[in-house]
Structure formats: structure tokens, C-alpha cells
């Protein structure tokens, strides 16, 4: 379907013999801002990895921009922020500028070389994430929040049409988190970037996202936040009090 950025149909994933995702189906439209929420171990990160072909799926299909994962080659259309900063070697000798430049190579043909115009894109990404003053610092010397900003800048530097962020605000203080959500909202509204944001914080994401996908190994809910708050199915799933708490914070 035109305008469909991600189409997932009857997706099943297992880690060894443990079923992690069961019969997942949903579609993300161009311009959507979707929050993937759910408890720990609900399969949010697994779903993201299956969409990005980072893990093998047991069955089902995933399409990106209308193409099956096997045929999809336009990775430059996607910006990605992995879940954990723990992969980051504190002694890795890369400057902030070098790390952000890694986001530009998806678009480049062999041999992948940076051009002068790329510096402007790197500067723009640094401006957007407010990290211009640390451009020459080594990534390992930064605080968790700064490192997170650098990695978000790496994800957006290419001007992606689809941005997938897996728990991007874990190292942010509340003020920085709020500011970050605003930045994403601007990207979504002004640049029509389709956003998928994985988070535990279903209440905060409800303020910004146009849709919510509540996952607990299977899709429990997929729709708008308002529909989530008025859904009787969700009331019976969460209990009235918990649902009220989430939706009250939204107000």
C-alpha cells in the first residue's frame, strides 16, 4: 500500500525455544509517530531488531517502504538508535564528529568517503542535538546523556524518512527528556519523519506519539493514545486504576 512505511504480518520470533513474539501484525504509515510500549521482556527490542533484519524471524513477513526485507537495500532511508549504550567501549578513540559521520555512510557508494557538504549535515545534526561544543571530544569521555545525544545525532544526520529509537532517553534527566521529545515532535511534524520510539514510559510518549503499540509478546493494543485511554479492552487488561494513572498523566 502506498504510504505504508512498515508492514508486519503474522511475525513470530523465538530465542532458542522461547517464543518472544507471537503473531505480530500492524502497519506504520508515512508520518506516523508510534510509541512501542510494554513491560520488560515484552519483545519491544526484538520487534525492532526483526524489523531491521538484525535477528532472524521464525515466520511471518516484514516489509520496509513496500519491499520485503530480503529485497530492501535503501538503508539510508532509516535512522536507528540501538537500545543500550553498554556496547560502547569507554576507550574507543572516536571523536563526536567521527561518530556522527558514521550515519552518513549508508547513502554512499564504495569507496565511502566524506565530502565537504557532509560537514554541513554533521554540523546541523550537532546543532539539533545541542552538542556542538563537544564536537572534538572523545565519545568515551562523555556523560551517558551526552553519549545518547551523539548517537541520536548519528541516527538523524542522514535525514532519514524513518527514525527508530530504542529507549533513547534512559540517560537523560527529566528536563532533557522533555526537550528531546519536543525535538522529535518537530522532526515528525516539520520534516515528516516517521518515528518509532521504544519506551517504558507509556504516559509521556502518549503526549507526543500519534499511535501506541502496546506489546506483551503479542500486540495487546495498536491505535491512537485517545483510543488507548477509552478502550474497554485496555481497562480490563490493565485495570481501571492503572489505565487512569497513565491517561491522567497524559492530561
Amino acid at each position: 500500500m502506498p504510504g505504508e512505511i512498515i508492514t508486519v504480518q503474522h511475525l513470530n520470533c523465538r530465542y532458542n525455544s522461547v517464543e518472544v513474539l507471537s503473531d505480530i501484525s500492524f502497519a506504520v504509515q508515512s508520518g506516523d509517530y508510534v510509541g512501542f510500549v510494554g513491560p520488560n521482556g515484552s519483545g519491544k527490542t526484538t520487534l525492532v531488531k526483526a524489523i531491521l533484519r538484525l535477528i532472524r524471524q521464525e515466520s511471518g513477513t516484514v516489509s520496509l517502504f513496500g519491499k520485503g526485507l530480503g529485497q530492501f537495500t535503501e538503508w539510508f532511508r532509516i535512522g536507528y538508535l540501538p537500545q543500550k549504550l553498554s556496547f560502547l567501549n569507554p576507550n574507543f578513540p572516536a571523536t563526536v564528529k567521527e561518530v556522527i559521520s558514521l550515519g552518513l555512510f549508508a547513502k554512499k557508494k564504495f569507496p565511502k568517503r566524506l565530502e565537504k557538504s557532509d560537514r554541513i549535515l554533521i554540523d546541523e545534526a550537532m546543532n539539533l542535538m545541542d552538542i556542538t561544543d563537544i564536537r572534538d571530544a572523545l565519545i568515551g569521555e562523555l556523560s551517558g546523556g551526552q553519549q545518547q545525544r551523539v548517537l541520536v545525532a548519528r541516527a538523524i544526520v542522514n535525514g532519514p524518512e524513518l527514525l527508530i529509537l530504542d529507549e533513547p532517553t534512559t540517560a537523560f534527566d527529566p528536563e532533557a527528556r522533555e526537550q528531546f521529545y519536543h525535538t522529535l515532535q518537530n522532526l515528525n511534524r516539520n520534516r515528516q519523519v516517521t518515528i518509532i520510539l521504544v519506551t517504558h514510559d507509556s504516559a509521556t510518549i502518549g503526549k507526543y506519539a500519534s499511535k501506541l503499540l502496546y506489546l506483551d509478546k503479542k500486540v495487546i493494543f495498536f491505535g491512537s493514545f485517545d483510543a488507548f485511554c477509552t478502550s474497554e479492552h485496555m481497562t480490563s487488561y490493565f485495570g481501571e486504576f492503572a489505565q487512569h494513572l497513565i491517561c491522567h498523566r497524559h492530561d
Binding site: R53, L102, A106, L114, R154
Partner: peptide, 22 residues
């Protein structure tokens, strides 16, 4: 030298490198 940037990307963050089409 030819694969310098691919090496840098894969060494820094292999998962991201794969999503970059490397």
C-alpha cells in the same frame, strides 16, 4: 584504506553498521 569507514563503523557499533547497509 578503501574500507576505512566500513571498518570504523563495524568496529564502533556492528549493529548500527548493519542497519547502515554495511
Amino acid at each position: 584504506i578503501f574500507f576505512y569507514n566500513e571498518h570504523l563503523s563495524a568496529t564502533f557499533d556492528e549493529e548500527f553498521a548493519r542497519v547502515s547497509g554495511i
